[in-house]
Design a protein around this nucleic acid. Structure first.
Length: 387
RNA sequence: CCUGAGAUGGCAGAGCGGCUCAUGCAACGGUCUGUAAAACCGUAUAAGGUAGGUUCAACUCCUACUCUCAGGA
């Protein structure tokens, strides 16, 4: 096969974890991969070379945001997103479907000053969006999304789907599933060159719906699969992973890369990888860095492997953010300094904290990959979660 | 030395002759999972420079003193 897009190089013997490579037009993605989120065409506060130095192969840009700002006309002037950002590696774009959830009536923000539900309306054709920046109205359906993603030029595209909230009635979840399936077919009609389109499995926490969706999506000629609507932070954790247990046996039989949308606490990563997930994207390392959370293995599972650098106990602390960490931040600066920068909301804080956290994630994935090829993935996992 | 302004919680800083006295920062706790997040939420503590006076009642009005700041000699 001349155009191989995915190759598994090793399988773990005790779990469904697998190590592999996704081949893209802009280079390789080593899997399992962590995919940071760069919503507005930037992994906030980092330059492309800094991202790469964190052992990160690929990151996520959001089509919705690009459509409004800067607009596709601007991207066209640069040929594609890679040129625009000066990022030479692989890229993924989200379809915009997630914003119907994040900006819609069931969005995760319960903050009274940022009511967003008036910005998005969803129907069987797609979503009507109103720009929060200039009030401009825009319709995004499956066609519009893929056309936009073609122009953006990412290496991996997401099909346009409806992300559901939790809790949700089965009737409503079925509706979202039917829309997602209908839209999946429409997305596939677009001709793509050197771009991999992933189909998204929906079905909320309902066993039969997830099975139905996994079956439907997996039988379509997508380059890879993604599992959506499990990162709403409201559903019980066991249900999140139940969804993987239901759907992965079907998806894994195709030898195509599988992405888990929106998942990214450390424990979640280990569990997901052990079940067969090849890539996951999440906001955790970058957003939490900006909120003062520094990842650190010693903080342990009960603290979600992180601590709050802004706390008074770190004033003047002359140790590095994490013992043994080789990242730029840890090599050059102390907790006490970061504590100071954070309290002053100095710009340098955001960059240094993001560099450390992203290194933490990038290096963890590297260790996970190595452990899979060395046959010691379970040992690594147990060491982190229960050691 | 003169003139003027001022003195409020750990800090900064409003208002008010009378309810458990604003707000911000700091403290403490919480949230965040395909990013309108450099965000948001909650809790507790805590004051009236000193000495008098007026008043039913003073952090708020008056007097003196102390101190601070600005300008002047």
């Amino acid at each position: 096969m001349s155009n191989q897009i995915f190759k598994v190089t090793s399988y773990d013997k005790k779990t469904n974890a697998r190590r592999g490579i996704i081949f893209t037009n802009h280079g390789l993605i080593q899997t399992p991969a962590f995919v940071p989120v760069g919503t507005a065409a930037t992994v906030k506060s980092l330059t492309p070379s800094e991202i790469k130095d964190c052992n990160i192969d690929v990151f996520f840009v959001n089509t919705y945001h690009m459509l409004f700002r800067p607009g596709l006309e601007v991207i066209k002037k640069y040929k594609n997103l890679h040129e625009f950002m000066n990022w030479k590696g692989p890229l993924m774009t989200d379809s915009g479907g997630f914003q119907a959830f994040s900006l819609g009536e069931h969005g995760p923000r319960n903050n009274p000053i940022s009511q967003t539900d008036h910005l998005i309306q969803i129907n069987d054709e797609g979503i009507n969006c109103k720009s929060a920046w200039d009030g401009k109205n825009l319709f995004i359906g499956p066609q519009e999304s893929i056309k936009a993603q073609k122009i953006l030029g990412a290496d991996i595209l997401m099909s346009f789907d409806e992300c559901t909230f939790y809790p949700i009635t089965k009737k409503r979840a079925l509706k979202a599933l039917e829309r997602t399936h209908k839209w999946a077919r429409i997305c596939l009609k677009q001709r793509l060159i050197n771009q991999l389109l992933y189909g998204i499995v929906q079905g909320s926490v309902f066993h039969d719906l997830r099975m139905q969706s996994a079956k439907f999506i997996s039988e379509l000629p997508f380059a890879g699969f993604a599992i959506g609507s499990v990162a709403n932070s409201k559903e019980p954790r066991e249900k999140v992973f139940q969804v993987l247990d239901w759907t992965l046996p079907i998806l894994l039989s195709y030898l195509k890369p599988i992405h888990f949308l929106g998942i990214g606490e450390i424990e979640d990563i280990f569990i997901s990888v052990s079940k067969g997930i090849d890539s996951l994207d999440c906001v955790t390392p970058t957003r939490l860095a900006r909120m003062g959370w520094i990842f650190n293995k010693e903080a342990g599972l009960k603290n979600k492997f992180r601590y709050d650098i802004g706390r008074s106990e770190y004033i003047g602390n002359k140790t590095s953010l994490e013992k043994g960490c080789k990242c730029f931040t840890c090599n050059n600066f102390t907790k006490g300094y970061l504590n100071h920068l954070f309290r002053c909301r100095e710009l340098l804080y955001y960059r240094l904290a993001t560099i450390h956290n992203l290194n933490f994630f990038g290096n963890l994935m590297k260790k996970i990959r190595q452990s899979i090829s060395e046959g010691i993935f379970t040992d690594l996992k147990d060491n982190w979660l229960y050691g």
